[in-house]
Design a protein around this nucleic acid. Structure first.
Lengths: 337, 337
DNA sequence: CATTTAAGAGCCGCTGCCTGC
DNA sequence: GGCAGGCAGCGGCTCTTAAAT
């Protein structure tokens, strides 16, 4: 079945091709009668203009690119939803690429973005190489970094204050009288993780007598968390941490589970703080205290900023918008009270 | 900064435009020396062919469309990941649209798919109207329904056997000696939900003395689940269900939480079965028995089938591939044993 | 003179300027 | 002068033609 083109619409409506184009794009330049005839023909034939041809002619695609590290993680799902919220009314479409923790995939998506001439991109880079790639992409189209700050201050960014998040979590435990803290995470090379650790260290440094040890595990899954929890429960009381900061709620829930299975009481023996405040946190084995990051809101703000850059309304200044995380306090640190 | 085109590459390499095109797309037709010169020029200039121009000329976009109901739900995230797994090697790209439970958004995405000339689409339709829309889209490009069967037997589909899933959950509870079952879900109009209920009813019908009541709530969130759980805990023992089938793990965890808070023992007083077997299920307050659906695998199979349709290797036959769900049995029904 | 290899020109569908009624 | 239509061209690809070996 052949595609119906503007030609077919024109002959059906008994007008010229340019009148069809005008009727569709600038109806005020054409008589009402023609607009009506064209509309009818379009409806009859089910005509849909071909984006590729329009784009080639106009030089603009109406597309924004967005890469996220792992679409399966609800945090990034929220980010995408937020971005779509913001672009919805502008007519721009978001082309989402799942880089899946893989630098090559990220690179491929950036090339796709160039191929399809995205007018701007929201990038949540994976690793430092990703950041450099994003800067390179930024030399041809506006780019806003998401959940990450540009080290070189070139690209605008919207992110969470991870140092504050880590500090907040540790501070909370210290206030509750905990003195032997543990930080459990995977992938120290991820900037957000490093910053959270730095924040936690900062809080500890201000309180003499409190110590913090970092433990690194292969992945932040619930499964690994269970193992770590059991391991901690098995330590001699003097070596066992009494407060744990984690980098992710799945991990934290696993840890709590492991601790309970190992005979610990949570939070009496060990208090646990998660990160992300996923929906599940509130109904976990022991409802989980967690650092909440309003991801959807952040996605929205990032997209708004990008749209402003694309429209030329503002210029990129390397400005960084930082969202403050909030601590959702629940039983895993303060018990049921 | 002007875009670099094939023209620029040609003059830089000192060859004609067509040689550049040949060197890039059919290197065997051109001498090795030219291929090398072109490659160098492409690298120097950072040339990336414009997809719109290629598409306009070739008539193909290399894109597949995919709509999902809610990208924030890890189930759909997995579906997308699976589809990307399958298309990765073929060179096709997946354009993902989040229909967000909204028929209008779905319609918009279908129009976008036509505009960009996707070569095929994976559609996980929202409601019956969505199914009709998908069939219409199916008249111009190959479409495979995902997580849904075509009522009219026109479109190929890949889905889970929801009747079996519902039956499995109820059967499990009945085998454990439960006789007063409750089915808790939202949105009876969603086919998957109706089928699960039908499956559960079917299991109950085969066992005289067992009854099943359906309860409908506004949304399947953990929060609503907590409310329902507390409500059930407050019922007089004779009216209270002793086994609950839910349509979603978040909901199920909330229900368990509400039951516990209301003083019930799980599973002793009330057993609960979830749906989806999310990562969290294993580390929930009471580890959750849940119906597992291998979503990523399904996404992969659906995409493979679509690729076969697109390549013309096979014809659409309205054939339905059904995946059998599996029951992950945990403490919320059988206790710790 | 036959055969390989490179150059040239038109076209894909649509828009927007510009002409002409 | 308001409104309809003709025509060129966006950037690649590919067929045709020309040149070189």
């Amino acid at each position: 079945m052949k595609r119906v083109g503007i030609r077919d619409v024109a002959s059906r409506a008994g007008v010229s091709m340019s009148s069809v184009s005008n009727a569709l794009n600038r109806p005020e330049r054409v008589s009402d009668e023609i607009v009506e005839r064209v509309r009818a023909a379009v409806a009859d034939l089910g005509y849909v203009p071909l984006q590729a041809a329009q784009q080639l002619r106009i030089g603009r695609s109406g597309l924004l690119g967005m890469t996220v590290i792992n679409i399966t993680n609800p945090f990034f799902g929220d980010l995408v939803s937020g971005a779509e919220d913001a672009t919805g009314s502008s007519g721009a479409r978001v082309l989402v690429g799942n880089s899946d923790d893989d630098e090559k995939k990220e690179r491929d998506y950036f090339e796709l973005f160039k191929r399809v001439q995205v007018e701007g991109a929201l990038v949540s880079p994976f690793g430092d190489a990703g950041e450099a790639l994003a800067r390179e992409l930024g030399r041809s189209v506006p780019v806003v970094l998401v959940d990450r700050v540009d080290d070189e201050g070139v690209l605008d960014s919207v992110s969470f204050d991870d140092v504050a998040g880590g500090r907040m979590a540790a501070e909370h435990l210290i206030e509750l009288g905990r003195t032997r803290l543990a930080f459990i995470g995977a992938r120290e090379e991820v900037r957000q993780v490093r910053e959270r650790l730095a924040g936690a260290r900062d809080a500890v440094a201000r309180h003499p007598g409190v110590r913090l040890d970092a433990t690194w595990i292969p992945r932040t899954s619930a499964e690994y968390g269970v193992g770590v929890g059991i391991m901690i429960a098995g330590l001699p009381p003097g070596e066992r941490p009494d407060g744990i900061v984690t980098t992710n709620d799945h991990l934290a829930c696993g840890v709590v589970h492991g601790l309970l299975r190992g005979g610990m009481r949570v939070p009496d023996d060990v208090a646990v703080v998660g990160y992300d405040d996923i929906e599940f946190a509130a109904v976990a084995a022991v409802p989980l205290t967690s650092v909440r990051q309003p991801a959807r809101e952040m996605g929205r703000v990032a997209a708004q900023q990008l749209l402003r850059l694309v429209s030329g309304e503002v210029q990129a200044t390397g400005r960084s918008i930082r969202f403050e995380p909030e601590l959702a306090v629940r039983a895993s640190t303060v018990g049921y009270r």
